[in-house]
Each structure stands twice: as structure tokens, then as C-alpha cells.
Design a protein around this nucleic acid. Structure first.
Length: 416
DNA sequence: CGACTTTGACCAGCGC
DNA sequence: GCGCTGGTCAAAGTCG
């Protein structure tokens, strides 16, 4: 099996990262007297869609809710995929999760994690229409951010690799400058700093299967208090519907343990990357309520290329990737392969449209290179073999970026 | 024979 | 200190 033949239901990530602007800062900005139109400006720049649930709170309310820890419980429907892993999926824990605009693409956060890592920047909702339920996202904290994505995001299928490259990693634009609101974290006091960290702990606890598990708390602390605060502690949690117990993600793993954890009768398997000196680990477990769902948790970032696929005569990743890239993408892409940057983009961010999608490419070198996650917004499932019609959503990522840039420049005077 | 899996034991953190 | 829990170790077994 060269790629997941399962289907994604959602993605949750948490990575050791410096803070995003604190909610208090956002609220202060939103509450500024003559900046009362900040929300309007934001909404003008990133208009909300008709698909947005009416019960969705305003941006101000969402930020205020986060500040006051008075956050609405996650919608059951949203949680359902993850709830499949929990014994008591109906439990609504007082949540530090922030409901964000459905136009705010979680895939974008996956693709541009530095937006959250950079403490002096914030991210705004993307203009991408989204017909799915609201997303629950936590992105706060200085060194440990958690994000839960439990809805279906058309941007996952809508983001061509060239756009990802333009937004995320290429020389075209500094990702942290894309949407720069210049929230000065330095003005935040230490107490608030700790408060956000506590929220991060809470979110890890809540999102993980063991809300009261000391080990879970320990994980959060360890990733934050670590001497280096290395991004190696990035954690990516992927939930998918697959019958594979250990779907091939392109890397080679050695199973080193198996444990039945509390709340899930299905054992959790622990794997280590077999690459020399690579400390990346993952554990895989099936849902307690619905064994159809597989939860794969990656700890760390591979700082090496994936090995050649098992059984492949290819002599390594280059062969593997070159063959992938050399496939006929003409049906999906608008950027000619003659462009070196485009080729690089294709290598780093293979289109989600290219079947088969290999988890090697999904998790190749960490969050910063995560490509789009295709999700069928109609039923929350995405079959990799089903080709979404992305070109009607975002015909060209460069144009989208230019549009966002122009509007930011027009509305906020940001000269990107 | 090497790579990988299995599985019981062990370790460490946390709450009580 | 004790028990619970998640994570890890390592020897034995399995497989190609």
C-alpha cells in the first residue's frame, strides 16, 4: 500500500510554537473606540459566507469568549469524528476552543504554521467560502499551540500547490507577513502569558482521549518547558477512516510497543521512525466507539527524506518523488512544470488531486510542508480517488494571494 | 539473516 | 507512599 486508501475525517495538530497574539490583545484591538470597525473591516476583507451558521458568534464575541474562558462547547456534530475515539463523546468539557469563521481554513494553518509561531502576527479568516460546520481552533500560547479541525474545508481541495508555495514557503512572500496585524505580544503581561499556556494544556487535555490524564498534561508541559523548545515536538494528529491499522505514510516505522489505554478498548500501537537518529514517533489507535476511525498521532518532525517505498526498486526518495512529480498533472494544474519554483512547489506540496496521495507527501517534513487535505464537505469524507473540482474554487493561487494582498493593502495599509 | 512484531516488564509523572 | 496511567524497553518470536 503506497498511500492511504482511507479517508480523512479531520486533522488536529499541536506544535510547539511561540504564541499567536493573545485573545486579550485581539479583544483590545476589537474594542478600540475608533477601531470599532475592525470587525467590519475584517469581515469586509474576508466576507463570511452564506453557509455560515446563524448561531455563530461574532468575531468580537469569539475573542471575548476566549479571553473569558467562556467558550461554547464544541458542536456535537463537529466533534463526532473525534468523539468516535472517546467513551463519552457527548461530554462537553468547558472548552478553551475558539470557534472561528468557517472561512478560516485549517489547512492554511497547517500549511503556514509560522503564522502561529510568530508571536507578533496573527492570522485572519481566509476568504475561501466554506459550507461546512464551524471549525474549532485553538492557536494560542507561546510555545505550544493546539489546533483542532473537525469540519470539512474546501480549501483543502482548493489550494493548488503553487498557491501553497506562494503563501507558505517560497520566496514569493514571507508567510508571517501575509496578514500582519502587528499585535505586539510584548505588551502582554506574564500572567496572561501563563494563562494562555494553561489554555494550551487544557486544550491538549481536552482533545486527547484522556482528559484527566497526567501523562497528557505532561506532554504539553514537556513540549513547552523543554530547554530548546524545539519544533521537533510538533504533534500532528490525523484521524481517518481506514481499515489499515498502520497506513503507509512514506516513512518506515518500527513498532516498539502496544498498550491499551484508558477509555479505549482498542490497543494503541507505538512506532518509531527507523531512520538513524530520527526521533519521530507515532502512535496509532482505533476509535473506542467506532473502530472505523483510525487516529494517528505523529510526534516530531522528520528531518530526513522518506525512504524508498517498500518493495520499490527506486533508490530513494528522489526516485519516488520524481516519479510522482513527473506524473501527468496537466489535468489539474495551471502552472507549467518548466518553472523551477513551481516544480519545487509541486515537490513540496503535491496537489491533493494527484491520486494516489501519499502520506509521505502529507507529512514529509513537518507541518510547514503539509499540503492540502482533501475533504469532501458534503459528508465529511474524502475519498482520495474522487477528484474534486478545485479549479472552480480557486483557479489560481497566485491570483488569490494577490487579491488578499491588495485588499490588505487597501484596508490596513499593509504593503506586502 | 535482517527487519519487524509481539508482549510482559519496567519507568516516570501525577493525583490522592 | 501508593496506585493509576501512558510511554518505553527488550527479549523472543515471526516473516520474507
Amino acid at each position: 500500500m503506497n498511500a492511504f486508501d482511507g479517508t480523512y475525517r479531520g486533522v488536529r495538530t499541536c506544535w510547539a510554537a511561540p504564541s499567536s497574539p493573545s485573545p486579550r490583545s485581539l479583544l483590545a484591538m476589537l474594542n478600540q473606540g475608533d477601531n470599532n470597525d475592525v470587525v467590519d473591516q475584517i469581515n469586509e476583507i474576508f466576507p463570511q459566507t452564506n453557509h455560515q451558521p446563524e448561531q455563530r458568534s461574532s468575531l468580537r464575541e469569539r475573542v471575548a469568549a476566549r479571553v473569558e474562558f467562556n467558550l461554547p462547547p464544541l458542536e456535537t456534530q463537529n466533534n463526532r469524528p473525534f468523539a468516535a475515539f472517546f467513551r463519552n463523546p457527548s461530554t462537553t468539557v468547558p472548552s478553551p476552543l475558539v470557534l472561528i469563521s468557517p472561512g478560516f481554513s485549517p489547512s492554511a494553518m497547517l500549511q503556514f504554521p509560522n503564522m502561529f509561531i510568530d508571536p507578533s502576527h496573527m492570522i485572519l479568516p481566509s476568504p475561501v467560502a466554506n459550507g461546512g460546520p464551524p471549525e474549532a481552533v485553538e492557536s494560542s500560547g507561546a510555545d505550544h499551540a493546539t489546533m483542532m479541525i473537525s469540519n470539512n474545508d474546501p480549501m483543502h481541495v482548493a489550494l493548488p500547490p503553487q498557491q501553497v508555495a506562494a503563501f507558505g514557503s517560497g520566496p514569493t512572500v514571507n508567510e508571517t507577513d501575509l496578514i500582519n496585524m502587528e499585535i505586539d505580544r510584548k505588551n502582554e503581561d506574564e500572567e496572561e502569558y501563563k494563562e494562555d499556556e494553561d489554555e494550551e494544556h487544557n486544550i491538549v487535555d481536552e482533545l486527547d482521549a484522556e482528559p484527566s490524564s497526567p501523562k497528557r498534561r505532561k506532554f504539553g508541559e514537556s513540549t513547552m518547558i523543554g530547554a530548546t523548545r524545539s519544533c521537533k515536538s510538533q504533534r500532528v494528529i490525523i484521524q481517518m477512516e481506514t481499515e489499515e491499522n498502520n497506513p503507509d505514510d512514506g516513512f518506515r516505522w518500527r513498532k516498539y510497543g502496544q498498550k491499551v489505554v484508558k477509555g479505549n478498548p482498542n490497543p494503541r500501537s507505538y512506532y518509531k521512525c527507523t531512520y538513524t537518529a530520527c526521533d519521530v514517533k507515532k502512535h496509532v489507535e482505533r476509535g473506542a466507539e467506532d473502530v472505523k476511525f483510525l487516529l494517528v498521532t505523529y510526534d516530531g518532525i522528520h528531518e530526513h527524506d522518506p525512504p524508498a517505498a517498500r518493495g520499490s526498486s527506486s533508490s530513494g526518495l528522489k526516485g519516488q518523488y520524481s516519479s510522482s512529480v513527473s506524473q501527468d498533472h496537466s489535468n489539474h494544474r495551471t502552472v507549467p512544470p518548466s518553472s523551477s519554483s513551481a516544480s519545487e512547489a509541486l515537490r513540496l506540496f503535491p496537489s491533493s488531486l494527484d491520486p494516489p496521495v501519499d502520506m509521505t507527501q502529507f507529512y514529509m517534513t513537518g507541518l510547514a510542508k503539509l499540503p492540502s487535505l482533501p475533504v469532501n464537505q458534503n459528508h465529511g469524507l474524502m475519498n482520495w480517488n474522487v477528484e474534486p473540482e478545485i479549479d472552480r474554487v480557486i483557479p489560481d493561487g497566485t491570483e488569490v494571494f494577490k487579491g488578499i494582498r491588495d485588499r490588505l493593502n487597501l484596508n490596513f495599509g499593509l504593503n506586502l
